[in-house]
Amino acid sequence: MTTGDHQPAPGTVERRSFLDALLGFGLFATAASFLYPIWRYITPPALAEPVTDTVIAGKVSEFKANTGAVLKFGTKPALLVRTSDGQFKAFTAVCTHLDCTVQYKSDTSQIWCPCHNGLYDLSGHVISGPPPRPLEAFTVNLRGEPGQEDVVISRT
């Protein structure tokens, strides 16, 4: 290498490019140290959602035959149906298609989702429409003095 020539010797790293790399690395590390906490922060925390297994819907006498009622079951709605012959059936009221809330249709004795016209029978099976899966069924028990029984819905 001649004097005054700033070409680096072969195989050596020039001071400038070394410092440039260091600067780039520093900026990259800064960006990463900013972005990682932000990414973790904007990810919604997994809430310890209280798992509801049982809910008292009310007294037997409150539910007439051939009607349905939507009630709160944990954080999601449930559908309680009293059939024409007086039996109780309960399902999740969340349609398996796109999460709309289903309702009981007393004229046809079917469960109907108004969003996309999905129909389920009283066992929760899909009759027609877009729902891909049957509705999850819950167990219904009657508890208490005869005539004063509570309708209790539980997850099976």
Partner: peptide, 9 residues
């Protein structure tokens, strides 16, 4: 207390 890095922000 619940959100990750929420205390930091």
């Amino acid at each position: 207390s619940h959100v990750e890095f929420g205390w930091l922000i």
